[in-house]
Nucleic acid binder design. Structure first.
Lengths: 208, 208, 208, 208
DNA sequence: TATGAATGAGAGTTCATTCAT
DNA sequence: TATGAATGAACTCTCATTCAT
């Protein structure tokens, strides 16, 4: 007969999510350049060659991770705009939400922020554009807050945005999920310090 | 005649500095893992095998870069302690000097901060120890400033130190020597914002 | 038609045995140190990189050859003990069987005896231990034969064992399968001469 | 003045013997194929390239070692012929002298016997011819002793010679200068056992 | 869908040898 | 005589990718 014998149930679940999860783990641990597809396949429990039923290349794997992260990031932007009326409160919300998101998805978000540079061609352009948008979003909030006299005007918003992003971006190099602080605590400190760094200077406060 | 008879003048100068410079360039541009010694050799203008007259391994090249950077970093720490009396002023000096150093040696310092993780064995231990010392230095200044009531006490110094280092650490991802701002300007902004982020909070300043 | 439509039939059989056989040939002919995996791959008809589907390193190839040879050697020891009652007869059997084994597997046994030294780490220890066991086996038979007054007592059993092994060990340097003598003939001569060299001396026989 | 200043005495002794000695050490320890000229140069205390003032190639170094050993070997042959009247006594002398020579020059003689195969072209032919002569010398003594009814006639002289040489040849794999036995003791045992192995068989001696 | 064999390019590294100085 | 820089070929090993089965 041509029908499959029922006895043997081959594992036919869709392995895409598993592969993506494994790739996230490996790309995070080793970095994209040093990661090998064999590592990914080993985690999934499949042979290297078999991955190509789900992906078309190593780079595509990276691209998918970045695309998905970008969607989440975009959602956070929108939510932040919706959450408050003033740009300063929107910024506060955005920083806090983003930090929480980062800390609770440390592997994938690290990849999004730090390994996207390995993409090529259009995908590289796309991820770069997204990075610029991310940066522009923060800068525009700073700009608007500034025009409402809520924050200091003596620092360039572009540079300020880069420094703010940088502190965030670097969290994955030191944060340990099993460490002393919860994502909420760290996100709180990050948000507080960042806003303080933008605050209107009060004469004689910490100056020399 | 006094001129050399043969047309082709082969360069017989010591190429160690050239090789180090080329390695710094390549490791910075591609990252250590993705960088190849062929890239380095191409820049120097020799075959990759010829590099081994000057180095014993690719890793050793990386180690040399890190060791030299560490020396400079240590000097800055000492200078900062000598430069002022209060921990807050010492911190200010340290942040400013370090930022200037980073911005004017962006490639090598980037490697020191971000690629040292690729070292192995004792060298890895060493670079990790150095990283902890760097962090401990900042934290201890924060601790002492705190005990003198000069800065806020509501954020954990460890986390604060990590965020401060993170912003610095990440500069290499966005700074362009041919950009709008000079190292001095950026270092100034970085120092100002960082100190502001540690300042004693003034009620009602930027809070919701 | 029943025949395969495409002209070129690619061999999809498991090539492990082929690779082992090729390695034995190459390691024997050139010595392990001078042998290259390209030689092995050429014989098998694949690219050298392809060998790594079957082996994990050149050394592992050598180790496999040695392990298999050791098994055979151990079997011969056991068979020899089982084959006779007196240590002298056991020795005779052992020498004869071992010589036959060597002569009919000249390449692999040569490698086992002479190239195992290139192994490293635990594998080197193992092959050294095996060598000591081989030596101890012969020496113990000599010891026991001596205590039964069957052989001479004026030569040290350790040195005697080394010389006996040495003559055997060296066969691969001169034996040619297509030569004048069969393995059986050579093994017979080897056994006879060796036992005679251990015989109780008869006064005036060949002495000065 | 054109004369050399006397103060600085450059080491101008002829380094040929040193280089040869170093090569012997290295070739013995690692085997010719795995030995590198850098090892040799390191021992001499000179740079790799400088060796080429004394040698024309790595192979030539090996050739010199073999040539010198061959001279010594030839001398022993002649001395042995001169030392006694009967072939059996000549053989005894030869085996003993050769064993002593081997044991007291273990490194160079090991190379002569075991590494000469790495030579190429005419030099390889030469060393092979020498090996054949060595073998032929022993075989002819056995032949002559046989025709005088001094030794057994039931083993082929060619095979016997190979086995006798083999035991000798292999000494370098186990002899340690700091071991239990002196060269004289080992040479004595070797000679005794070898002659016993050639003795006329006495019925019932060690046979089953 | 999954395998496993194979590819081809490229990695880091070693080495005998050459040669201007 | 000796140096030290450089070569070029070979080496072991890794990897993304392909494809017949």
């Amino acid at each position: 007969m041509a029908t499959r014998p029922k006895g043997r149930t081959i594992d036919r679940r869709n392995r895409e999510p598993e592969i993506l999860a494994a790739a996230i783990e490996v790309f995070h641990k080793k970095g994209y350049a040093a990661a090998s597809l064999r590592d990914v396949a080993d985690i999934v429990g499949v042979l290297k060659g078999s991955l190509y039923h789900y992906i078309s290349s190593k780079e595509e794997l990276l691209a998918r991770i970045c695309v998905e992260s970008h969607k989440q990031s975009s959602m956070i932007m929108q939510e932040s705009l919706d959450s408050a009326d003033t740009p300063l409160d929107q910024l506060r919300t955005f920083l806090h939400k983003t930090a929480i998101w980062y800390l609770t998805n440390i592997e994938r978000v690290h990849i999004y922020f730090n390994e996207g540079k390995w993409l090529t061609g259009d995908r590289l352009e796309e991820v770069r554009t997204q990075g610029r948008e991310f940066h522009a979003f923060i800068r525009s909030l700073i700009d608007r807050a500034r025009s409402e006299d809520r924050i200091r005007t003596d620092v360039d918003p572009r540079v300020a945005a880069q420094l703010i992003i940088g502190a965030l971006n670097n969290i994955s190099t030191w944060y340990r999920p099993d460490g002393l602080y919860s994502p909420e605590e760290i996100a709180g400190i990050y948000t507080d310090m960042t806003l303080a760094s933008l605050a209107n200077p009060v004469p004689g406060l910490v100056s020399a």
